[in-house]
Amino acid sequence: MSDKEEILTEMVEMIGAMARLDFSRRLDIEITNEPINLIAFGLNMLSEELENNIVIRSNLEEINSNLEKFSYTVAHDIKSPLNSSKGIISLIEDEVKQYNNQGLNEYIEILKNINDRTRSMIQGILEYSKSNATNITMTSIDLNDICTKLARDYILKKEIHFSIEEDMPTLVYNESALIQILSNLISNAIKFNDKEICEISIFCKERAFDYMICVQDNGPGIGKQNMKFIFDLFENLQSINEDSTGIGLTIVKKIIMEMNGEIWVESSLGEGSKFFFTIPKSTPLVQEKSPKHSHTFNSK
C-alpha cells in the first residue's frame, strides 16, 4: 500500500469514527500544501473543535436536564404546602362562619408550621443556588486546627465524643468551603444520632492523587435504599422540616464536586456511617506531618 493509499484509508476510518461521535483520532501527517495533507490537516482541526463542542453540548444537556428536574421538583414541592394551607384556610373559614373558634388555635399553629417549612425550603433552594466554587480564595489550612475548632463549638452544646486524628496535613483549599463541608457532616452526625453518647471520628488518608477525609459516626446508619438519594437535591427537598432546609448534603456535594473532589458514604443500618470526601492534590499540599496519632475531645 502506498503512503497516499495508507493515509486515505486512515481518513476514511477517522470519518467513520467522527460519525460515531468519536473525535479522539488524529492523522499523523506532515503539514504541507499538498491537497491530501491539507485535507488530513483540516480533518484533524475539525475533529479537535468538534470534540470540544460535543463536550460542551453534553454538559449543557446535563445542566438542562437538571434544570428541568429542579423546576419540576420545586414547583411540585411548593405546591404541596400551598394546597395544605388552602385546606386549613377553608376549615378556618367554616369555623368563623359558624362562630365556632374551637379549632382555630390548632389551625393557626398548622398554618405557621406550613409557612415555616415553605420558608425553609425556599431558603434551602437559595443557599443551593448561591453555593458555587467561582471566585473562591484558596488558602493554606491546618486540618487539625479547623477540626479542633469545630469540635470545640459542638461539645459545648451536646454530649459528644470527638476523636480527631493528630498530625493531619496542611492543605490548600477554600477555608469557608471546608468549614461548610465539615460542619454539615458533623451536624448531621449529631442531629441523627440515637446513642447515649454521640461519637464522631475525623481522619485523613493521603492517596496517590488526593487526600481522603472521613467523618465517621456511631449513629443509626443509612439503609441501602436511602443511600443513593442522600446527596440528591430532588429527593432531599422532600425531607425539609422546620430545623433544616434538608439539602445540606446536596450543597456539600456541589461544593466538593466543583473543587474536583468526590464524596461518598459507607454505612449500614445500626452500624453508623462514614462520610468520605476528597481534596485533589492538584490543590497543592503545603506541609505534611507524620506519624499518625489521634486525640480526643469529650464534652461535659
Binding site: 491539507l38 482541526m45 475539525l46 473543535e49 463542542n53
Partner: peptide, 16 residues
C-alpha cells in the same frame, strides 16, 4: 495565500 493558510483562516471565521 496558500490553501493551507486559507484553511486555517476559515477556522477563525467559524469554529474558532
Amino acid at each position: 495565500e496558500s490553501s493551507l493558510s486559507r484553511l486555517i483562516g476559515n477556522f477563525f471565521l467559524g469554529l474558532n
